[in-house]
């Protein structure tokens, strides 16, 4: 067992977990933040993506203990109170989700993608967006409207 301390969605949290606990398990089971989903065992579907110290990572491929001392943002912490994050708003506006299961990971990936592009001064064109979504699988939308949502959010965040 080990004690992990993190800041999750701006709140300091602490938990006693076994060393093998994945970050995704810690979030879902210890903190009841069930918006982070697990859809595969091989680090490919991306339903589990959260931000650690501002960077997108796969929480199902990371031990909670490895993340001791970090600041974690999950889908539950993205909106500012009742104000949706521009990426959340764009997913709704452009019908970028259907069953909603991959959506938290998609949105967290999209936020990271847009912020990285902004920081490096790159414009996100469709080809780049599709390439950057390599680690997120959606079975419902065919990606068409996810791409539209990310394009729109990138414009809104410019």
């Amino acid at each position: 067992m080990t004690t992990v301390n993190m800041t999750v969605n701006g709140r300091k949290v602490s938990g006693e977990v076994s060393d093998r606990t994945l970050l995704s398990q810690f979030l879902r089971e210890n903190l009841n933040l069930t918006g982070t989903h697990v859809g595969c065992d091989t680090s490919q579907c991306g339903a589990c993506v959260v931000h650690v110290d501002g960077k997108a990572i796969k929480s199902c491929t990371t031990l909670a203990a490895q993340m001791d001392g970090t600041s974690v943002t999950t889908i539950e912490g993205l909106a500012n109170g009742a104000d949706l994050h521009p990426v959340q708003a764009a997913f709704r506006e452009h019908h970028g989700l259907q069953c909603g299961f991959c959506t938290p990971g998609m949105i967290m990936t999209a936020v990271d993608m847009i912020e990285r592009a902004k920081a490096s001064g790159r414009k996100l064109d469709e080809k780049t967006i599709r390439a950057e979504l390599e680690g997120n699988i959606c079975r419902c939308t065919g990606y068409h409207n996810i791409v539209r949502a990310i394009e729109a959010a990138a414009a809104a965040m410019a």
Partner: peptide, 9 residues
Amino acid sequence: IGDPAVRHM
């Protein structure tokens, strides 16, 4: 290599 999230780790 991998995808953006994998590249961060």
